[in-house]
Each structure stands twice: as structure tokens, then as C-alpha cells.
Nucleic acid binder design. Structure first.
Lengths: 201, 201
DNA sequence: CCATTTTGTTACCAACTGGTAATTTATTCC
DNA sequence: GGAATAAATTACCAGTTGGTAACAAAATGG
């Protein structure tokens, strides 16, 4: 999908591996917080010079946007897979609980939620991308819950939209709590409690 | 409580009003985020010079700690009042929902929750204070729910500790969502849904 | 009037931020 | 063996950060 560099015929061969830089940046952003990792630090960790990075990504905003794209397709896709897995309400909720409260990848939180929480600190490109992903996630939650309502298991007096947003926010809350070192068993317990509103008589 | 300055007999009279500086800083921290407001900006807004501020508060950490103390007794106390108001479960939960989703003071979020969310960016004094307040709040939630369980209205299979933490996190979530401009009616709806787990048969 | 004490002000510090101009190095085409 | 081209490196830029040293101003005590 991304416009691949057609490897120019002439000129000094590139030492820098863009994918490696993205991996380094993603790990750093993910482990701490995008706002707490400078481009200088990323260059140092990736073993490249600043102008190299800027030639490849244009700006800090461009880099963080590229990182977010990578994160979306490598990690965030997992949530969409669960939602579109064709399971019934209960099974899907259980899978979401497992993912949020036990998947080792979420041990230091979710990069997307960290970016969303600090949205005002992001550059315009990245911020727009965050909002797009947020909207796509919301749409996926809506589609899932809609199918559940069509299948019959749905509590009275709750709009699909509100339920979808609620579901998304509870997942975000659980994962964010993991990033702050909260007891995983307790997080699971609270998340199960929060989502029990969907499966009560 | 605070060690009042005994007004020295000699020396140039002070122009700076420490309380005013605290108000200015609290408003700024509260409206945006402590991490996004520099001491330079506060000095400018308060119309004082940096050395004056540093003589009074010692460091940025000292200032933010003083601001947090002020915020706790001026604003956060409200939550403790609700919890210790002697109302039954349902009434107290409704009051908490009202406070979190409609009180105009929470329109730009809660300074305490903003500090807690960005704990790693705070100085040591302020961070310790945040943890103390967090523990005090948790204790208040526990005491309240314990009294409810003693009174009989309590769902089976839920520990008081877990319920208390759940309650606190749902309040934090609701208020944080207000800060990000979410539809207040929707926030209320979701919070009511989250807290309905306490009042279901 | 003068020394003392306390406050306020100006101007500065080193460290760091995102970002770049200038130059050197390595390659291919002719 | 040169041009031409593209990448890498070095050294820098202005702006901001938290924090301070040096000094001036305003009060009181003798």
C-alpha cells in the first residue's frame, strides 16, 4: 500500500532502514509515551542521524503518524479481528476481556490510547489519524453490537451507539490501567463487572 | 494548618499574593494540563517574577504540590462530602453521577485526575501527594460501600475493595471524558450504565 | 542618616526541544 | 576519470525549559 521507494539507480546507498526506525520509535512510544520520547532519543536508539530521519519522515508529526499506522495494522487489527470473528455476544466480550487484561502486548498499555489521551500534544497529521482510527473502532463496535441485537441478545433500553461507546471506553480504561501497573486480576474483575451490563437479564 | 508567614517586622513589603498565584496556577493547570503549563507562563499570568515564585514555593514541584493541596480542599472535598453524606446506595450513586457528569466545575475535567494520569511527569513531592489522595479516596469509597453492604443492599459475589476501585475508576473516566468534550448526556448515560451493576437484582 | 533586612527585578545559565544548512562520502552513468 | 546524484554527518539554529546570581528598591531599627 505505502508508496515504496523505487531504489534510485544512482547515489550513495542508504544505510538507514526505515522499518527498523519505525520499530524502534514504536517500541519507545509504546513503552513510555509519545510525548516523553524526543526525536533525538529515537535517532540515538536507532543509530541514525537526525537529518536522515527528517528526510525519511519529514517531521516529528510524520514519524509519529507512520508509527501509528504501523501500530494500527500490527496490533490494533487484533481488536477488529475479535469483533468480526463471528462469535456471539458472550464469547466476543470474553475475548475482549482476555485481550485487554491478559495479552502480554498490552502490558505497558496501548500506544493508540496513549496517543488519544494526549491528543493535544500530537501534530496535525497524527491527530487526524487518531481520530480516524477512533471513528473506525467505534463503527466496528456498533456493527458488532448491532448484529448482537439482531440476533436477539440485547438488554432493553440501551441504544447501540451508547453501548458501543461504553464498550470501547471500558476496554480503553482496562488497558490504560494495565499501563499504570494495576493488578491484572483486579483489572479483569472490574472489566468483567463493567461488561456484565450487556449480559444481564 | 499551613505555616503562616508571621509578617516580618522589617524589609520591603511584599507585593506578591501567594494565594492569588495559587489560584492562577490552579486555574491554568486545571483548564489545560499541569504538563502543558510552564512556570514562566504562570509568572506571566500572575504578574510576578520567577525569583518571587521560587522564593515562595521553592520549585515547580513545590508549586504544583501547593496547588494540589488547595485543589483537594477546595474541590475534591466535594466528593468526600457526597460519600459521607449518609445517603443510601442509590442516592449516593445518583449524586456522584450528577457531580461527575453535570457539575460545571468538572467541565474541563478534574485537576487531580489529570495529575494522576500524568503522574510520571510530576515532581516527587506532588507525586507522593497524588498517591496519598488516591489512597484516601479509595478508603472513602470502601467505607461507603462497606456501610451499604452492612445495610443489606449489595450484589452477591463482589468484594467491597473491587467495587470501590471500580466506582472510583468509573468516576474518573466520566470526568476525564468531559474534559475531552464528550457529549454530557452521553457521559451520564454511560456512567449510569456502569454504576447500574451496584443496583441490579 | 545609615545599616539591616526583606522583597522585587533584570539578566543570565545550562540543558534540551524540533529542525536545517553545509559539507563529506559513496555510488552510477557517460 | 570525471560529472551527476543521493545519502550521511557535523555542526549549527532559535526557542523553551526549570532554576539562579547579582543587584536595586523599599521598608524598619538604631
Amino acid at each position: 500500500m505505502g508508496a515504496d521507494k523505487p531504489k534510485p539507480a544512482r547515489g550513495r546507498p542508504r544505510k538507514m532502514n526505515a522499518e527498523n526506525v519505525l520499530d524502534v520509535a514504536m517500541t519507545a512510544y509504546w513503552q513510555s509515551d509519545p510525548a516523553d520520547v524526543s526525536v533525538n532519543a529515537i535517532c540515538q536508539m536507532a543509530g541514525i542521524s537526525k537529518p536522515s530521519l527528517y528526510r525519511e519522515f519529514g517531521s516529528e508529526d510524520g514519524l509519529s503518524r507512520a508509527v501509528l499506522d504501523r501500530y494500527a495494522e500490527q496490533v490494533l487489527s487484533e481488536i477488529f479481528v475479535i469483533l468480526q470473528g463471528g462469535m456471539r455476544l458472550r464469547g466476543t466480550l470474553d475475548a475482549l476481556i482476555d485481550f485487554a487484561s491478559d495479552d502480554p502486548r498490552m502490558e505497558t498499555g496501548c500506544l493508540f490510547y496513549k496517543m488519544r489521551a494526549g491528543k493535544h500534544r500530537l501534530g496535525p497529521e497524527t491527530r487526524v489519524r487518531v481520530e480516524e482510527i477512533d471513528a473506525a473502532a467505534q463503527a466496528a463496535y456498533v456493527a458488532f453490537l448491532q448484529s448482537c441485537r439482531d440476533a436477539g441478545d440485547w438488554p432493553d433500553g440501551l441504544s447501540v451507539d451508547a453501548g458501543a461507546q461504553y464498550l470501547g471506553e471500558q476496554i480503553a480504561l482496562a488497558i490504560t490501567q494495565r499501563a499504570s501497573g494495576e493488578n491484572p486480576a483486579r483489572i479483569r474483575e472490574m472489566m468483567a463487572l463493567a461488561l456484565s451490563v450487556f449480559t444481564r437479564p
